[in-house]
Design a protein around this nucleic acid. Structure first.
Lengths: 339, 339
DNA sequence: AGTTCTGTTTAAACCGGTTTAAACGGAGGA
DNA sequence: TCCTCCGTTTAAACCGGTTTAAACAGAACT
């Protein structure tokens, strides 16, 4: 339970000044090699590690990155994206001695309050901008706050921040083409809220792919939650000419929709084909297995952390990163329509 | 983009010394009321907020709490517990200006490495000990590291840390009694790994409740993942006399088990009743709706954060907290067995 | 008037690093 | 021999708070 050694202890042991120790450990030139070795040895023997409290104060950095998430289960709760994304982020941060600070915004607050708090408290050196919206007001806010950021997906307006993107369109196209090849002609989608960039990307790809095949799109909008998925599904199934296949903008809605279809007496995939997006854990294990699209949120997290760190480290022009597109995963929930 | 004001700015404006400002803002006695008012007014006008970098250094506190989670999707990914738990934690922290630091341990590391890193970096003032194991080695580790902690569930050995507990047994009993009342006599469980305290609590309650009714327990062990749930389910269904009802130690395994049962041609609940534990979002929306047990992870997070903060604040004897037990939620996946 | 309180206030040290400007010491040049 | 220059090292300031010990009033007491 002895106190941890400070830089002064190292200096004393090596017989040099505090400043020299600091130089040696930050690899700054101007010290004789012999001195550097001596200092490193002393530091090693004492098991010294710089206090990042002290470092934080003197260099005005937090050595941490921030992620704001909303309490609203609609966005957070069983979203398979976040845990894997966070793991990817951490895989980068832990090697750099950085921490990941979570900021949950509660009901009654706006997401912006979360970023404000993070900035005001000086907790982080940069933040991840997830679930990007069209004309996302958070971009201006972060500029105003002077907080570096990386956007997950590319904003439609001008943005001073680098973006890490994963094109949702190829995956969406692949699902829809898969359904078309199976012989479906009445194909519907349950879209995500159009405020989200990735939601409209999927919608657009859906519509365009159908159009290319000369088919009419049928769209209901959900909110990415299971409850919303059920609602949208019921509306579609209540149509005079219900669709024979439904593409959902995420797996949660798809799995809920699957349940709703079955509850209303339909057999999947015989009476109705169902496809999702995300390839969440349960997608493989529900019955029938859910045809879906698999992305790599872990790699997304890694790329985002690397990009944000370049920015935080003061790099001038940080390039955008484009991740490989999501892949179609075919399972039992899709089949040719009954004649 | 002007620099944020420091305590010296406030002192100058109020015409007092730095020390007085510090006293005033921490509500320490010894200052004349008029002076305090003057200082508070000056601070207010400047919009001053203490830098917690500086505070961190001078009082040797991080003003943050830590949560270690494993990268393994098996424990993390679609576990409905964590997101809500985290939200509960944050609801307490945000009012106190504290942050929540996440530490993800990667494949190839032990969970202990995560706690070591948090301690070494001085990132947090205390940690949450989740997914408590029997004879959990992390307790000794944290004692050694001198890091305050709160255990989620009560350890079986001696522990210097306060515990926040939620008794899983009443909920488990309720499910099992529900199945017994429906007329089931061959009731199986798919348990969680016996290393976990909460897994054995559920197992014990399951066995005891059956015993009280003069029934024989039937147990397969899963690992809380969907894949493990499938495996265990297949083993149970392959028995010469398969059960007519299965209780799963969590919803993920239950939903996967539901899929497996349906995939093997059984109708739920006619041929097999299924019950889970957690009441995750999808439980309500799969078909048939999953009978399960609902706890309140948000309240769990709140209680844990409050308890840990008492400890961090130096309270002598921090009492344990007992949360109200989980409630049975009956849905369509359970019914009387076919005769 | 001088002393002793008591209640306020302040100067200065401290937390543990980084960074700047100046000091130092030995080699090379005049 | 003295001066310069350069590579090396250090003392000290600084980051922005907290905390301790001492200074300072003014009132009360001899």
């Amino acid at each position: 339970m002895s106190k941890r050694p400070t830089i002064a202890d190292v200096a004393r042991r090596a017989g040099v000044s505090k400043g020299s120790v600091s130089f040696a450990l930050n690899g700054r030139p101007g010290l004789a090699q012999a001195t550097v070795d001596k200092i490193l040895a002393a530091a090693d023997e004492l098991g010294w590690r710089p206090s990042n409290r002290a470092r934080s104060l003197s260099v005005s950095k937090a050595f941490a990155l921030g992620l704001v998430i909303t309490r609203d289960p609609a966005v957070l709760s069983s979203d398979p994206f976040f845990p894997a994304f966070i793991a990817g982020v951490e895989s980068v941060l832990s090697t750099r001695g950085q921490a990941l600070v979570l900021q949950v915004v509660m009901a009654g607050e706006t997401e912006q309050d979360g970023y404000r708090r993070l900035a005001r408290d000086g907790r982080v050196d940069g933040v991840f901008l997830s679930d990007l919206r069209h004309d996302d007001p958070r971009i201006d806010l972060l500029v105003e706050l002077g907080l570096p950021a990386v956007t997950l997906n590319r904003p439609d307006g001008e943005s001073p921040f680098p973006a890490v993107t994963l094109d949702d369109r190829p995956g969406t196209r692949a699902v829809v083409e898969h359904l078309i090849e199976l012989g479906h002609t009445r194909i519907a989608q349950v879209a995500g809220p159009p405020a989200f960039v990735h939601a409209t990307a999927r919608t657009t790809a859906f519509v365009e792919t159908l159009a290319a095949a000369g088919l009419e799109p049928l769209t209901e909008t959900g909110d990415f939650t299971a409850a919303g998925g059920i609602e949208a599904t019921r509306r579609l199934l209540a149509l005079p000419k219900p669709p024979t296949a439904i593409f959902y903008a995420n797996d949660r809605m798809a799995i809920a929709g699957l349940g709703a279809a079955q509850a209303s007496g339909l057999t999947v995939p015989d009476d109705l084909s169902i496809a999702g997006f995300d390839d969440s854990e349960l997608a493989e294990y529900v019955h029938p297995g859910l045809t879906t699209v698999r992305a790599d949120p872990f790699a997304f997290g890694e790329a985002a952390a690397l990009t944000l760190n370049q920015l935080v480290d003061g790099a001038a022009d940080v390039p955008d990163t484009e991740l490989p597109p999501a892949q179609l995963v075919v399972r039992g929930s899709t089949a040719s329509p009954a004649v």
